[in-house]
Design a protein around this nucleic acid. Structure first.
Lengths: 222, 222
DNA sequence: GCAATAGTTATCGTATACGATTTCGTACTC
DNA sequence: GAGTACGAAATCGTATACGATAACTATTGC
């Protein structure tokens, strides 16, 4: 459904299934931030006992998608402005690095694909649909950083995106003016990569691109 | 002992205790890389059942300290050269950023403390003790990045250090020549921070400092 | 009428138990 | 003598059960 890895659920451990299922519900926005994750209920929904569910929740906790309080329970991590700031800042750093490391490995086919996505985004500007726009935005950036040869960094990027995913409907809703600039910066980024710019330049551009979105958001709240 | 948070183990959940205990054993090098973590045995050692231990292992897995294979078991994550490279590269990025963000918040007292540590390191060069040197190295850098106002980034730095901790005895053992340069770069870094250099400069210097250690290591293996 | 407290309910935390899977050793066959 | 197949031991995965904790509610005293 979404771009997340789909696994043949058959031979998977229930713990893993629970992890995937709950994560999907969070990312898809079915479990909204603040939502109370009652172990017994989730277990019943999925049709197995609470033990695998607990492990799944623990993993999600380590990833920062859920908050856990002893003897109280788990809730979907909120997106309070402070958290948003932290996450965006972190993402600006790791995604910038990932993009720079990835750049030399991006072939012309991938560039073309990214450009096509960006074109869709441009069209999307007319009759603005924040949800669709944000989805395309993720697609675009995925093309740029997915070739990152360092799996650790790539993992950090994915985790950052996941944390933002729960509010993806609102990212650009809150800063619609940012969307247009974003499309332009995407093209600039593509040209940098095409021209074989050095890693520092690309990293800086990618980081600034995201930091600018954060700044735009901050400007609206003040 | 180290800077890690010490909690009153009394009112802690067993799951948490298990997490802390196993993590400590890994970081302290009691469980060496490749060590097989048998759930039942750990549970017995700690005096409780396997369930909390499982959760603890799951969390450690999410942090990358242990590897988990379905129906086979958990082992302490190895430090094969490739992993080392990935971890160091990631750390160079996040620690660089953390240090830069932290810099404006470092007061003269902290600078003095860092300088004292670095002085110890310099003395340590005479009768070289890799373990002690590496421990001091962590102390030094901790002073520099611990003020980082973004907890996410700080967390990533800690995780990186933890992954390296298991081989801390060997870090500088493998590249003894690097130790001397390292001390000098530390002083340069301190001066940059004292002089209120801009964030980019500090970030770049901090990143280079770590990347240089990685390069030195790579040079020995080729 | 309001506040504090006691009782109730919902939910979590952990132990025990058992079935499932893998791995290792041994015996058998070619 | 080497390779393969069978079986046993070890270990993991999950379910169920029960005790512990915290949130909620109702009642009582002021």
């Amino acid at each position: 459904m979404t771009g997340t890895a789909v696994e043949s659920a058959a031979a998977q451990s229930k713990s893993q299934q629970a992890y995937t299922a709950v994560k999907a519900r969070i990312v898809e926005g079915i479990y909204t931030p603040g939502y109370r994750l009652v172990l017994a209920k989730i277990a019943e929904d999925l049709g197995f006992s609470v033990v695998p569910v607990r492990e799944a929740i623990r993993r999600l906790e380590a990833e920062g998608l859920v908050k856990f309080e002893r003897n109280v329970g788990a809730t979907v991590s909120g997106i309070d402005p402070t958290e948003y700031l932290y996450t965006m800042q972190t993402l600006s750093i790791v995604e910038g690095a990932a993009t720079a490391l990835s750049a030399p490995l991006i072939d012309s086919v991938a560039i073309a694909r990214a450009r096509a996505v960006n074109e869709e985004m441009r069209e999307c500007l007319e009759h603005f649909d924040p949800v669709r726009f944000t989805a395309l935005n993720q697609d675009f950036h995925s093309v740029l950083f997915e070739h990152c040869p360092n799996p650790h960094i790539l993992d950090l990027v994915h985790r950052g995106w996941n944390r933002l995913a729960s509010l993806r409907s609102s990212t650009f809703r809150f800063v619609p003016g940012r969307a247009q600039e974003s499309v332009q910066e995407h093209e600039a980024l593509l040209q940098l990569i095409e021209s074989g710019a050095d890693a520092d330049t690309i990293e800086h551009a990618a980081r600034r691109h995201r930091a600018a979105t954060l700044d735009a958001y901050l400007a609206t709240t003040n």
